[in-house]
């Protein structure tokens, strides 16, 4: 039935032992194709991080299933395959770097996989070049900026040759410059290397770059579609405690004032086009 890369079936997750406590995720059924760039939005506590951790077997579903390339994450013999296939980048860049030298940190994953030293060497160089951090390979992580650290963390995942990278608010702790560096890297990995990207974010401007946007609320998927279709429903998205990109908001306000402008404007360029066509 499916050629989905990631597939969840009736996925439910409850923290803690008591079955009657409130589930963090409820009956999620979703499929993600290879090479897709998916952004996941949702207010605090909506279950985004829980979903992310279920994707690489850091936690196992309370109920239902997660399949990665057809492999069930409950299969404890395949845990390492799954974690190698689906890499994960976390919010705080400081708390995911292990080694005292950049290149040693990037080597950490391949070392865990038991790869031969000369192959590790190749992968480390390849990964650092892919995130544009090659000239920093001998630096100590604490001397790097937040955006640079986060790119090193991404390199550490790329060196494991994953097919998918899940990023849990990778830009939340970065300044605007660091944020754009990291976003550029993510988009490039998706477009050029064909790596499937699942990006959890609170920034609508980042979600606009994705092929697909999923909105979560209270442990459930409420909206799922292209950025245009999701953001054009301004009222609905607000009801889940989220905002829309600034230009989309502007077009929404203009429409309310009776100006005939398309409802699915996501970028400044589109806004300029839309306004020019009014005459």
């Amino acid at each position: 039935m499916d050629n989905f890369f990631i597939k969840t079936k009736n996925l439910t997750y409850i923290y803690g032992k008591e079955k009657n406590s409130k589930p963090a995720l409820k009956n999620i059924d979703v499929g993600i194709k290879k090479g897709e760039f998916v952004a996941i939005l949702g207010e605090n506590g909506s279950g985004k991080s829980t979903f992310a951790r279920l994707l690489n077997a850091l936690i196992i579903p309370t109920d239902g299933e997660v399949f990665i390339k057809g492999i069930n994450t409950k299969d404890s013999t395949k845990v390492w395959d799954i974690r190698q296939t689906v890499g994960m980048v976390f919010q705080n860049p400081d708390n995911q770097l292990v080694a005292t030298i950049v290149e040693d940190d990037v080597a950490f994953g391949p070392e865990n996989l038991g790869i031969k030293p000369d192959e590790i060497r190749k992968r480390v160089d390849m990964a650092l070049k892919a995130v544009d951090m090659y000239e920093y390979r001998f630096k100590e992580p604490h001397r790097l900026s937040g955006g640079q650290k986060q790119r090193v963390a991404i390199a550490g995942i790329i060196a494991m040759k994953p097919e998918c990278i899940v990023l849990d608010e990778p830009t939340a702790m970065l300044d605007p410059l660091g944020r754009s560096e990291v976003m550029e890297t993510i988009v490039r990995l998706n477009k050029e290397e064909g790596i499937t990207i699942i990006l959890i974010t609170h920034f609508m401007e980042e979600a606009v770059l994705a092929d697909r946007v999923i909105v979560m609320s209270k442990g459930e998927i409420k909206m799922d579609g292209t950025p245009k279709s999701v953001f054009s429903d301004v009222e609905k998205i607000r009801s889940y405690g989220l905002d829309v990109p600034q230009v989309t908001e502007l077009s929404y306000l203009l429409r309310q004032d009776g100006i005939n402008i398309p409802p699915d404007i996501l970028t400044v360029d589109e806004m300029v086009d839309g306004l020019c066509q009014l005459k």
Partner: peptide
Amino acid sequence: IAMEARCYK
């Protein structure tokens, strides 16, 4: 958690 996610065993 980050180390586990990077296959540390």
